[in-house]
Simulated scan of single mutants.
Amino acid sequence: MRETAQAADLLSWYDRHARQMPWRTGPAERAAGQRPDPYHVWLSEVMLQQTTVAAVRDYFTRFTTLWPTVGALAAEEDARVMGEWAGLGYYARARNLLKCARVVVSDHGGQFPDTREGLLKLPGVGPYTAAAIASIAFDRPEVVVDGNVERVMARLHDIHTPLPAAKPELTERAAALTPEERPGDYAQAVMDLGATICTPRNPACGICPWRAPCAARAAGTAPELPKKTPKKPKPIRLGVAYVARREDGAWLLETRPDKGLLGGMLGWPGSDWAEALPAHTPPVAADWQDLGEEARHTFTHFHLCLAIRVARLPMGANPERGAFLPAATFRPSDLPTVMRKAFDLARGQFVELD
């Protein structure tokens, strides 16, 4: 009964304080019979993986404007979708997004499976995403545990085991609280609680709907939870990006291999990335000049420093890698962030060609 009462307290708080998001069906709309669009829930959950709500809002709005249904997304060319995803990061998500959309259309008639088990069979849908879609879109009583929920559970139960070792216990605690009634609203309520009240720093315990049963608040340990195993320092990798423009204004670009970082994205030809600068050759014979600046970017597991080489190419240039993209069709926004950084540094060398 205690767990049921706690869930009811949280849902009562959520009914008054739910965050408004473009992909969310709020508690009032749900109560009036409006059901969430599974396509919107799936798209938002994929975009939100390791990405903030603030960063995702505009991307979600643009995607749903361009492709209002999963069928429309599935029918789009890969390059267009990858270009619109540029800047959001973790580009394997975009490749899996297209794969999943096409499977939903080809194998499920354009309808998402409504169970966690069925959703897990879709490309790019892991345990968390499957549980979130099943719960939020279809009101299944699945256990949805993201970083916000882990923090709330660690504090609610004063659990000091560091992450990631604490994940099984935190998931078990979350499962015990997940109600049969309104599980979709409840899943979003716990995430909202972590995002707005039970924040990483300076949690607002005084206005928390779970302040009474919170063991960490009583013990005075809430600000230090959850504990985490220290991460190893990220290594630095080096590489070279070759930014070239033909005398008619066309840019020399390539589509990166599907596998690996930035897979399937547009970018500048260049070297591999390694802790010592690897041996490499330019994509075309030219008078390459070292720009003397680096495009620096941090990925999940390493920092990258890309030296930039620039060259102007004649009309007859015949590159061994990449292809020329006319200036009229080149959109810098289609580049992933690190490649856009290289472009921003190099573009001043070619302004008279615009």
Score class of each variant (00 low, 15 high):
342 A>N: 07
34 Q>T: 07
235 P>Q: 10
181 E>S: 14
302 F>M: 12
140 R>C: 11
280 H>A: 13
156 L>T: 02
227 K>G: 08
303 H>A: 09
190 V>D: 01
113 P>E: 09
137 A>S: 09
256 R>V: 04
208 C>Y: 02
332 P>L: 06
80 R>I: 00
236 I>P: 07
105 V>F: 05
236 I>E: 15
104 V>P: 09
68 P>D: 09
313 L>E: 06
202 N>G: 11
270 G>M: 07
333 S>A: 15
250 A>F: 05
281 T>R: 05
26 G>I: 08
4 T>Q: 15
235 P>G: 03
38 P>H: 05
142 E>Y: 01
342 A>C: 09
209 P>G: 11
3 E>A: 13
151 R>I: 10
282 P>L: 09
321 R>Q: 14
297 H>M: 04
77 E>M: 04
210 W>I: 13
345 L>K: 09
197 I>H: 03
242 Y>S: 08
48 L>T: 09
16 R>F: 02
301 H>I: 11
106 S>W: 02
76 E>Q: 11
181 E>I: 08
79 A>I: 13
91 Y>G: 02
113 P>R: 11
265 M>H: 08
233 P>V: 02
334 D>S: 07
124 G>L: 04
177 L>K: 03
66 L>S: 12
101 A>T: 00
24 R>Y: 06
130 A>K: 00
177 L>T: 02
54 A>Y: 01
229 T>L: 13
151 R>F: 09
256 R>Q: 08
316 G>P: 00
92 A>E: 04
26 G>H: 06
70 V>R: 01
313 L>V: 14
151 R>L: 14
187 A>N: 01
154 A>F: 00
81 V>Y: 01
17 H>S: 14
163 L>H: 03
211 R>L: 13
164 P>R: 04
151 R>Q: 13
343 F>H: 15
71 G>W: 03
107 D>M: 03
168 P>F: 07
255 T>E: 12
334 D>H: 12
103 V>T: 06
116 R>G: 03
290 D>L: 14
57 R>W: 11
95 R>I: 05
293 E>F: 08
29 E>W: 10
6 Q>I: 08
273 W>R: 15
336 P>K: 05
273 W>C: 11
